[in-house]
Amino acid sequence: MNVNGESISGEVEDRMLLVEFLREHLRLTGTHVGCDTSQCGACVVHVNGVSVKSCTTLAVQAEGGDVTTIEGLAINGELHPMQQAFKDNHGLQCGFCTPGMVMSAIDIVNRNGSDVDEATVRKELEGNICRCTGYHNIVKAVHAGAKNMGG
């Protein structure tokens, strides 16, 4: 598979999860495991441009695919517009849910456009849980990021 633009190959057990492959084999520990049951969204990555929960995706399901993790967003140290928006709007505190939030947010904008409305953002973030922020600043950040992504 291709991970963050780099071609990767490895032998894995058939039961290995994508998140285990990313974290344990590739040491890309930015993708987190919060609940292990697909509810919290801390493990969201993109496979072929679409957000998936890597804690319930088998590594082999992503075979041959393009995988993007939180580590693959910034280019030469310059934050992706969505990362920058989270920073500017205090869209994070402890940071544990943040990688999944940012990956989901980018997918939301990709699918709904840069003028996505607040109700849609709130509805589509239901698969990502945050315990620190109360969501308000995350929604603000997604809006700001969406505008910036649209140029």
Partner: peptide, 19 residues
């Protein structure tokens, strides 16, 4: 003031215990 930890959290470079 800006939080100094945000950059590493936003780029996947935080270091939590399981990391």
């Amino acid at each position: 003031v800006r939080r100094k930890e945000d950059y590493r959290f936003l780029t996947g470079k935080g270091s939590y215990t399981d990391d």
